[in-house]
């Protein structure tokens, strides 16, 4: 279970304080697959970062009663100067996973070939994305936070991610932020719309998409 209590986030900029999120309350239950729809600049990524605990809310609280992944779709969680395999070792160590199994799993899932033994800075963006997704699957979180990443990748890998997430249907929750209704439709069972700093949840996917498209 993840609970968001009256979440506000504002950033200080040269043009003064810019509020991004203006009071978000929500509950995400284990196993739920929720799409969060929002236009560019609506604060989707910010919301994901707050849920992940990468950044802190200005006011309000994030309550996590399940293990939550880092926000996938950024290179943020990786090291460019070390190899993919070394990244896997590092992740295994900090999350207390068996090292060799993690290295093998990530190698297998990411399909990087010999690039797995080269520094991440030599990777294409698609390869970085595959590595990031494989790393997070190796840790096996109870909730995955995904930032449009799967839609960006090639379709074959997208299909594998979809399968991997589906296999975890029962225990893993998914929060996917996207500005594309189709992405949300293919991964999620319910959806919410982020607009004007507030989040509205809809039990019916089609209703959410209709509302989003009207925004």
């Amino acid at each position: 279970m993840i609970r968001l209590h009256d979440l506000h986030k504002a950033y200080k900029t040269h043009l003064g304080v810019k509020p991004v999120l203006r009071g978000i309350d929500a509950t995400f239950r284990p196993g739920e697959k929720v799409g969060i729809l929002g236009r560019n600049g609506a604060g989707k990524t910010t919301l994901l970062r707050l849920i992940a605990g990468v950044e802190y809310p200005t006011t309000g609280k994030v309550e996590r009663q399940m293990s939550v992944s880092w926000p996938l779709g950024f290179a943020g969680a990786m090291h460019y100067s070390i190899t993919g395999a070394d990244n896997a070792r590092f992740i295994a160590r900090i999350y207390g996973k068996p090292i060799q199994e993690t290295v093998d799993f990530v190698q297998d899932f990411s399909e990087l070939g010999e690039y797995y033994r080269l520094p991440v800075r030599t990777y294409s963006s698609g390869m970085i994305m595959r590595l990031g997704f494989a790393l997070s699957l190796a840790v096996d979180f109870e909730c995955y936070l995904v930032d449009e990443v799967i839609a960006v990748g090639d379709s074959r890998f997208g299909e594998r991610c979809r399968k991997a997430l589906a296999e975890r249907q029962a225990r893993s929750a998914l929060l996917l932020v996207s500005h594309q209704a189709e992405t949300v439709r293919s991964f999620c069972t319910t959806a919410a719309v982020l607009n004007d700093g507030r989040l509205t949840r809809y039990d019916d996917l089609d209703q959410a998409i209709a509302v989003y498209q009207a925004v």
């Binding site: 293990s67 996973k97 068996p98 225990r171």
Partner: peptide, 12 residues
């Protein structure tokens, strides 16, 4: 492959 997929320990 499945060995690595043990449940993640809760945060600290």
């Amino acid at each position: 492959m499945t060995d690595a997929a043990l449940p993640a320990p809760a945060r600290r």
